[in-house]
Design a protein around this nucleic acid. Sequence first.
DNA 1: TTAATTTTATGCTTAATAGCATAAAATGAT
DNA 2: ATCATTTTATGCTATTAAGCATAAAATTAA
Lengths: 235, 235
Amino acid sequence: MSRSSYNIDIESVFEGVCGLFPNLKPEEKEIMRNNITCQYFRKGEIIYKEGDTPQGLVCLSKGKVKLYKEGVGGRDQIVRMAKPIGFIGYRALFAEENYSATAEALEDSVVCIIEKNAFMGILRNNAELTLNILKSVATELGFSTNRTVTLTQKHIRGRLAESLIFLRDTYGLEDDGKTIKVYLSREDLANLSNMTTSNAIRTLSGFAEEGVIELDGRRIKILDHHRLERISDLG
Amino acid sequence: MSRSSYNIDIESVFEGVCGLFPNLKPEEKEIMRNNITCQYFRKGEIIYKEGDTPQGLVCLSKGKVKLYKEGVGGRDQIVRMAKPIGFIGYRALFAEENYSATAEALEDSVVCIIEKNAFMGILRNNAELTLNILKSVATELGFSTNRTVTLTQKHIRGRLAESLIFLRDTYGLEDDGKTIKVYLSREDLANLSNMTTSNAIRTLSGFAEEGVIELDGRRIKILDHHRLERISDLG
DNA sequence: TTAATTTTATGCTTAATAGCATAAAATGAT
DNA sequence: ATCATTTTATGCTATTAAGCATAAAATTAA
């Protein structure tokens, strides 16, 4: 745990987490309350590493997190972008495996963990809850399969356009209604879109020249969303 | 249903399916028995199409099935290869979505379906069973993510080598201890390995020239498994 | 502030893979 | 058996994306 001195309001964090579980019985909620711990991570810090053993269900309460796998040629592949309030690392927990990706904070983040056995105990006695989780993991498997197809079949422009739309859908827009509410390095954008950093830079500049987006450092404004979607769809 | 006249021993099929569910209570088994139907599909026939709505849990009792998604440029991507006894299409069922891939019989196959509501009813009252399924879907999500990385990052030779190893692991070898027990067209091999048919043919010939495999039409013998793994690992 | 480091930008070259054409072989249909 | 169709094989060309090199800009550290 880093900066344990940071003042986290664990009660409000806990209530936020519980909001993700509909119809939790009071006794189940009590078990969770007694088995939750919070941690603060600064931008750039690693929450867990590929290969680590899950100690519980990890919830991102505040901040932004990227999950990535080390690729064959040293190039990382970002496999998921997490936002609050939501879970990370649950796949490994439910599969009873070690983590298959590394979780790194993209911003200062608050993370809490519900102890493994306590949580699995609740699941073993609550089929409805387990079925809900099964539904969302099955939904995610669908996304993953889709992603495999688009990452392998779309061309560079299509892949990057899709990533920008994905980031907008995931994190939303600033108050101006245009700026994507997450600031990634060109390298992260590349690792999300399966391309080299050079190509992410080049293609992004191309989009800007065409007036589809506007660049200001890491801030990306979507000027012509319709055209961006067309680029994504054409592949 | 095609060739409904084909003689299927539904009792032995049913017992086979039940073997996949450990600790099923007698009353649950009875519900399943009363809600199962069988179908026969000939080689090349479509079991269900991308976009169809699941009517139940589909089990492959006999035969081999490929699951593929239509890609962006018309090129198909094989996302899974199924073998008996195992389930297909469960992802869409649990996610409450339509099928995200098409299932096609690679050989004459026997498929049975446990009616949706009957099966989901069992799940809603059996947390242990649901948790088992959650575990396997989570495991599969791990495979899928891994696959995304290898399909995007490995080079053609590495991808094809990996596919051959995957096919061997999935379907096993003939009695000679060398021939992979599934016969795919070069196009299917290409669609499994994310490459064009031309490149699958070329690369396969290359492996044969190098003495890593031996080709006899669609029969593929693995002569040097160690080298094949090295090609796969190098990417 | 200054220096060091990282990130971004751009141009040029090289490598990987797709695309196309043609022919041979295999398969399936009549 | 014959014809038609599909699959496989091979060569050549075009396209796409990666790899490098260099410089400018931005960020971080001292």
